[in-house]
Design a protein around this nucleic acid. Sequence first.
DNA 1: CCCGTATTGATGATGATTATCGATACGGCT
DNA 2: AGCCGTATCGATAATCATCATCAATACGGG
Lengths: 147, 147
Amino acid sequence: MNGDERAILERYLRSRGLKMTQARETVLTAFLGLESHVSADAIYEAAKRLDPGIGQATVFRTVKLLADAGLAREACRDDGARRYEHAYNHAHHDHLTCVECGAIVEFVDADIERAQEAVYRRYGFASSGHRLELYGLCPDCAPFDEP
Amino acid sequence: MNGDERAILERYLRSRGLKMTQARETVLTAFLGLESHVSADAIYEAAKRLDPGIGQATVFRTVKLLADAGLAREACRDDGARRYEHAYNHAHHDHLTCVECGAIVEFVDADIERAQEAVYRRYGFASSGHRLELYGLCPDCAPFDEP
DNA sequence: CCCGTATTGATGATGATTATCGATACGGCT
DNA sequence: AGCCGTATCGATAATCATCATCAATACGGG
Ligand SMILES: [Mn+2]
Ligand SMILES: [Mn+2]
Ligand SMILES: [Zn+2]
Ligand SMILES: [Zn+2]
């Protein structure tokens, strides 16, 4: 399972004359060991646990490579920092976020996707992706329940 | 027309014990004179034309007040900088952006809005707003036309 | 094992936004 | 109109995430 991602990264690097290095493998392992929606800095912290000598710049650079290789994807940039999520075996989805506690629900809605395609057609655009974030209050954070 | 916004800002400030000052009026006028999707820095440039002595920090502070007062709204933060658009008499809409030339189409799609409400209900969330950005190639930037 | 080249990590530079702070402008009150 | 406590201003330093630079080092094909 885990080797899949490593192989994908290596193939990607090779195809561009880049090298599979110790540092890059460390960053990949660190990223794969974290759950969704992590900042580059969180990956840096995890990577330092695997190799205390790794540099922050290397992590930023490598995370970008992971994204180019299709292993990571920019999930959101809500606060100040970008957050990444796994992209391998993790299909496209949108996010429903609680503005109170930060809980995140990942969802895919066929009606929304379909309606978006209609918008593209209406304006003669060729689709190249979209970003949808729904904000609201989750059941736990709602002021009170309706009977 | 223009006095409306001034009155709204003044009422908002008054309700919080804040003051309607010369600088704030200058920023408001500068903002109203610009078209949609402007950065705080663009507003600063416009404000300097009205009052060369105005400070950048004041513009950042005031734009945030305009947003709180419901006169401005954060439209997107795609690159590095936030961009604002008029919010008074400018109802909610989403954006379709050309990744090649940057052209922006503002649209509202009833099907999408309806399907979003269904998602909120499905997960028991109370809606508090959303952000949808569609990316693609506009007709002018498409590689070639289909017959 | 060698060598040219890609990579690394420390550090300085960015750019956007925010915090600080002494000086100044508001505006309710007399 | 003049006073005065407080909100605001503008200049400047500080953050924060991310990037660029660069000398030292690690890769990996031959
Ligand atoms: Mn996600
Ligand atoms: Mn808009
Ligand atoms: Zn919640
Ligand atoms: Zn275009």
